[in-house]
Amino acid sequence: MHTKLKRLWKIIRRLSGDDAYEVYLKNLHKQQCKHNNTECSKPLSKAEFFKKWQDEKWQGIKRCC
């Protein structure tokens, strides 16, 4: 039950974008590992990332009729 609730909470966070910053950090790390970067670029702060993420999200057609 506890695992199911945790899973549901994870889905809600992912759907709403609540965990977007964590996903970004995870992906950034993965990308850097993939390309064997010895010098890691500094990740964006949560506030910086969130603004950039929202600006990019609303560049194109994202909502329909």
Partner: peptide, 27 residues
Amino acid sequence: LENGRDFVPTHKWIVFGHHFAAIAGPG
């Protein structure tokens, strides 16, 4: 083309949720 921003492999139910939220308007 994964870049951690707009190109992100995502769980199918999450994609379904985003897709439905985007297509379902007042029409």
